[in-house]
Design a protein around this nucleic acid. Sequence first.
DNA 1: GTCTATATTGAGATAGAC
DNA 2: GTCTATCTCAATATAGAC
Lengths: 226, 226
Amino acid sequence: MPQQSPARPAAAKRRGRPGYDQQSVLEIAVEVFNERGFEATSMGALADSLGISKSAIYHHVASKGDLLRLALDRALDGLEGVLADPGASEGPAVDRLEHVLRRTVEVMVQELPYVTLLLRLRGNTEVERDAMTRRRTFTARVTKLVRMAGAEGSMRSDIDPGTTSRLLFGTINSIVDWYRPGGAITAQKLADDLISMSFDGLRLPAAARVPRIPRVPERVGTSSGH
Amino acid sequence: MPQQSPARPAAAKRRGRPGYDQQSVLEIAVEVFNERGFEATSMGALADSLGISKSAIYHHVASKGDLLRLALDRALDGLEGVLADPGASEGPAVDRLEHVLRRTVEVMVQELPYVTLLLRLRGNTEVERDAMTRRRTFTARVTKLVRMAGAEGSMRSDIDPGTTSRLLFGTINSIVDWYRPGGAITAQKLADDLISMSFDGLRLPAAARVPRIPRVPERVGTSSGH
DNA sequence: GTCTATATTGAGATAGAC
DNA sequence: GTCTATCTCAATATAGAC
């Protein structure tokens, strides 16, 4: 046990009470899992981060996989809650889609470490596979919304709904790789930016462009011919 | 060794020659690493997939980390090549950006397993951290293009360039999680769809919409009020 | 709720023969 | 280029005291 000062349970302790409870162990564990990766985190390293011994962890959870299960359930409960929301089933599909995407961003930010863990699973254990199944059910329901919005005529249908949905989730899921609450941008603004880019696009129409002095010859290289 | 028939080196053998060479070992290794995760893949499991013994692997590479290094170098060489391309430095920034994003998609598809491995690193070893540094340099240069395109007036600047770049890379990088060459959509079409969604957006302007018979009351739920 | 000590398994890697 | 046999260490988990 070489790692850190072996006495202090760093942070996130239940207030006033001595030692950890399951929730506070889980909180730290998920942080460490995300830093190093779940498989790469040994119970020993986790114990060091907690400032307690390995065996003390087993007082709170039956196994390492148990910690994972608790974390994944929390992430999935949050995401599934998004679809239970009234805004997910009322109005035109394009608005329902927008609503679901916004709420998904919200939940991701709110449950960031738990969702992060969920999104990095490889399906090596039963616990992981079960979580991946629940996650796929969630995304499948969103894909259905994309298809309906296309059929409704409010969204482009030249891109396959499956592709659209995957790209949308790619954009959304990437949030866990860089966004940190308390930073420069709020969850609300993040959702706005994401929806705005995905729905309205990044390019300004030529009419709206600010006139500029070209510093390099116009159109020397071609941007799409390859 | 319970896993599979221990005789046949499945596929990807150098033609005609008996046994593996480094390249063919790497090819299979990267596949297995992506399936189960690098840390979760033991040399024993890898040996089973190769159909040879553990120790035979060490004839081709000095360590497990060496396999990772070889794979990451290949991915990074490909990506860095994108920026060496003339189209990355000629013309308006918005066109250069589009060019770089298209070529990035191409390289990702071409080197899919290697790039996949790169994108899942946690930085646990020196090899991983070095690769992450090279990757960050790449993305930083693309972020610069986003900033220039904004300054040029050809792209929206209400979204922070850093955020834009991160969302763009989120969209692009997610390709490794679902796209498989030989499937329903070509790399070219994938790049078209991705650029089209990101630059022009998914929403059809109201004018272009197909008239429809509402199946649910219009605007009962609100899509953004929460 | 936590500890020390330990059982047990599996990991990465090496030796040396074929 | 591959094998069997083995070294060494670190992993998960348990036993039982405080």
